[in-house]
């Protein structure tokens, strides 16, 4: 059952990801992006990562994508079907970036034993024990606020700086 659901969600995710790229209408692309994010959240639920799934929807689909939609509508891109992707340098850059990301991912997950990310994973039994002990949110919150607290705080400061910078730039034009 879970396997069937996994393949359904995975197919929707990949299909919608293609939709994002192939749609010429920006709002359509955005909705396909939301569908991709939602099906990824579905996959998270299948892996018992309920918290991640909820956060995925709240943060990405519910907040960031709404802001994107807001910007698309404000710039009124939506009703204009012109292609503004430049064929040439842009295409080459896009393929290079995609290839780079794919290469990194293959290196990370190809050799399963050597990957540091997989080495830190406690395995299914370990995960069950961890969830039973600390709860679904505690298992994420504890490492985040103990082991990785400095990285976490630095990320927060980075976002704050970006926020202040954005406000400063936006204010200057008025």
């Amino acid at each position: 059952m879970i396997e069937i659901l996994f393949y359904i969600f995975a197919a929707v995710a990949v299909g919608s990801a293609f939709g994002v790229v192939l749609q010429k209408n920006p709002v359509g692309s955005l909705l396909f992006m939301v569908a991709t994010l939602a099906s990824l959240a579905g996959i998270f639920v299948l892996f018992e990562a309920h918290f991640l799934a909820a956060i995925q929807i709240i943060v990405y689909a519910g907040a960031i994508m709404v802001l994107f939609l807001f910007v698309i509508m404000l710039l009124n891109l939506g009703h204009d079907y012109r292609r503004d992707i430049q064929v040439g340098v842009g295409m080459v850059l896009a393929f290079a970036t995609t290839g780079l990301i794919a290469g990194i991912l293959v290196r990370q997950f190809g050799g399963a034993e050597t990957s540091p990310m997989l080495a830190a994973f406690p395995g299914p039994e370990g995960m069950d024990a961890l969830l039973a002990e600390q709860g679904i949110i505690g298992a994420i919150a504890r490492p985040l606020f103990t082991d990785y607290v400095i990285v976490f705080e630095l990320t927060g400061i980075l976002l704050l700086v970006a926020l202040v910078g954005a406000i400063a730039i936006a204010k200057r034009r008025v």
Binding site: V34, A54, A61, I136
Partner: peptide, 23 residues
Amino acid sequence: PVGILFILAFSSLGVYGTVLAGW
């Protein structure tokens, strides 16, 4: 297990209905 977060997640998606209708 994520009760309220589920509600927050889906009510945050609710804006799409309104926005798409208007657009």
